[in-house]
């Protein structure tokens, strides 16, 4: 089996007294879409934010390309080539598409912003992703639909030649056509060799685009399987009870906490 691009080992995370993640192992492979599934509050977004460097982790290792790395903030993670599309979309409404795509990493010539180069690159990227719904790259982000905003956030990942892209419920608020577009985009990213993580509550979407499925149950990894090895019923069982036949965490709470 190929080496994971990004890997977390034994991660624990508490918010005060609430222990949200228990010994989580998680891996992202190049060219694959890994679906991260779990019920509301299972800890999916928390895991993503730990990978993104927004939250620190209490214990556990963070590996990139098989090497142990130190991450202290979003910048370190971005420098590794990891891009995150958040559930609560992290775009600035008062800035336009180009400005958002380059936020925090603006191109400059001297000390002056190089707006021309940024606009060219942004347009090139959107074009290469066959984005057909955006009117102008100088449109303010506030005027975009949910799907268009997702598209911009995803295009940002492509723009920066990221190796890993994490998408937290990118289709949650979208209509049929826009969901289609975003899923196509997700598949295309993986086909380019990126490691993609897709969080979704929609099992049809998951089964359609995912190569692997990691199920979280109350902050524990219930299963990490190939899509071919499970069916929809099994995934739903893993999500709701943490177990499905031979798969899942043992029922004995003593062994479950190991």
């Amino acid at each position: 089996m190929t080496q994971p691009l990004l890997e977390l080992r034994g991660v624990n995370k508490s918010f005060g007294v609430v222990h949200v993640l228990h010994d989580v192992d998680f891996a992202v492979y190049p060219g694959q879409v890994t679906a991260l599934v779990g019920d509301n509050g299972a800890g999916k977004s928390t895991l993503v934010k730990i990978i993104a460097g927004i939250y620190g982790r209490d214990t556990g290792d963070y590996l990139f390309d098989g090497e142990q790395v130190n991450v202290h903030g979003p910048r370190d993670v971005a420098d590794l080539g990891v891009e995150v599309v958040y559930q609560d979309l992290a775009l600035c409404d008062n800035l336009d598409i180009v400005e958002n795509m380059f936020l925090g990493r603006e191109l400059r010539s001297g000390i002056v912003l190089d707006d021309n180069a940024m606009e060219e690159k942004a347009r090139e990227t959107l074009a290469s992703l066959s984005v057909r719904t955006v009117k102008s790259v100088r449109q303010s982000v506030a005027s975009l639909s949910g799907g268009q905003r997702q598209t911009v956030a995803i295009a940002k990942a492509v723009l920066w030649n990221s190796k890993v892209v994490l998408l937290d419920e990118p289709t949650a608020a979208l209509g049929v056509a826009q969901t289609r577009q975003v899923l196509d985009l997700v598949r295309r990213l993986a086909d380019r060799g990126l490691g993609v993580v897709l969080i979704s509550h929609n099992m049809t979407d998951v089964l359609e685009v995912a190569d692997r499925i990691t199920a979280l149950y109350l902050g524990r990894v219930a299963a990490d399987v190939f899509k071919e090895d499970v069916n929809q019923t099994q995934i739903v069982e893993l999500i709701t009870t943490g177990r499905s036949g031979e798969l899942g965490i043992a029922e004995n709470p003593a062994t479950a906490t190991v």
């Binding site: 927004i54 992290a90 400005e99 925090g104």
Partner: peptide
Amino acid sequence: RHLYAVGGNAEAARRAG
């Protein structure tokens, strides 16, 4: 540019590093 970004959405700015 960062001033506008923080004013528009401080959390997004933080996540952008």
